[in-house]
């Protein structure tokens, strides 16, 4: 499988020349499985450009099908949804998975985004594509086949991927981290992770364990994180700690603060590399996610 980054920014899109290199769009990645299936994780404004590129494929002809995994429903993780062109094409089908106590509650949250006070779409029913919205409650360790399960609990098999999901603390709420595994390859997406002082739980570390790629929240510099602990984000220190303890092969920095210019992200990347080396992670590859970047897993 391979992963492509469409939006790498946190909180709110940050247009301007100072974000041209890493990109100013909010969180969205796409995963193309070895078997050719498409899985999208989060739907920030990066989803606009992803949607545009998909219109040249079967999605433009109304013959596309993809799964959308949502880490949580803060705006920067769903605000691209109403502008994702393939959802307006009849014939396309999307399975949307996200954190909520029930599927109808998740549907209500996404329905609220389309409310006529806020959006000219008025309701999800006006989207052309068909959409199934399914809650992903907490991971209970028992594997199910989604096609037969009535209650969807992670882990599950999705588009040929083994999917695990566990919530990380994120300020007043939680954010799901996803592990996507195809054969012996694994990709982890852990954005908006606001760990307590002791770091991620053992269960979460087992979800990260030995991942070929760990895409990890790196919203803040350590200095800014210390000032804004209650917001529930990581700096590269927390990302390095998670990567080293879980023995991942490749750490990808993600979800930069909206006020961080490209040059500062360069600096954070250099500091992150030094921290990895100092913490016994010399063999861990490091990449700072940028819009348009594709990495093989």
């Amino acid at each position: 499988m391979e992963v492509t980054f469409w939006g790498v920014r946190g909180s709110i899109p940050a247009p301007g020349p100072e974000t041209n290199r890493y990109g100013g769009n909010t969180s969205c990645i796409s995963v193309r499985t070895g078997a050719g299936r498409l899985v999208i994780v989060d739907m920030g404004t990066g989803a606009v450009n992803l949607g545009r590129s998909l219109m040249n494929t079967e999605f433009g002809a109304g013959q596309g099908e993809a799964s959308l995994l949502l880490s949580h429903t803060h705006w920067d993780h769903i605000q691209g949804f109403p502008f994702f062109s393939p959802i307006f094409v009849p014939g396309n089908h999307f399975n949307v998975y996200g954190a909520a106590r029930s599927s109808s509650m998740l549907e209500g949250i996404l329905e609220g985004q389309m409310n006529p006070h806020f959006s000219p779409i008025y309701t999800l029913k006006n989207l052309g594509a068909s959409i199934s919205i399914l809650a992903v409650p907490v991971d209970d360790g028992k594997l199910r086949d989604l096609s037969s399960a009535t209650r969807r609990r992670a882990p599950f098999i999705l588009d040929g991927l083994l999917v695990r999901a566990l919530p990380n603390p994120h300020g007043p709420t939680t954010s799901l981290a996803y592990r996507l595994q195809e054969d012996d390859r694994s990709l982890v997406y852990a954005s908006d992770a606001g760990y307590p002082a002791e770091g991620p739980t053992e269960a979460m570390l087992s979800l990260y364990q030995d991942a070929d790629i760990l895409i990890h929240d790196c919203t803040y510099s350590p200095e800014d994180r210390a000032q804004r602990l209650s917001r529930g984000f990581s700096s590269y220190l927390e990302a390095v700690d998670a990567a080293v303890r879980a023995r991942v092969k490749h750490l990808v920095m993600f979800h930069y603060d909206q006020d961080y210019a490209d040059d500062f992200v360069d600096e954070l990347q250099a500091r992150c590399r030094a921290e990895l080396d100092a913490r016994g992670g010399k063999d861990i590859k490091l990449t700072a996610a940028a819009e348009g970047l594709t990495l093989p897993v």
Binding site: P13, P15, G16, T45, V48, G80
Partner: peptide, 18 residues
């Protein structure tokens, strides 16, 4: 000065993407 949704990126730097 932008409508519908913000558009970061080099092709909107002059007029602005907000």
């Amino acid at each position: 000065v932008r409508g519908s949704y913000p558009v970061p990126g080099p092709t909107t730097n002059r007029y602005g993407g907000n």
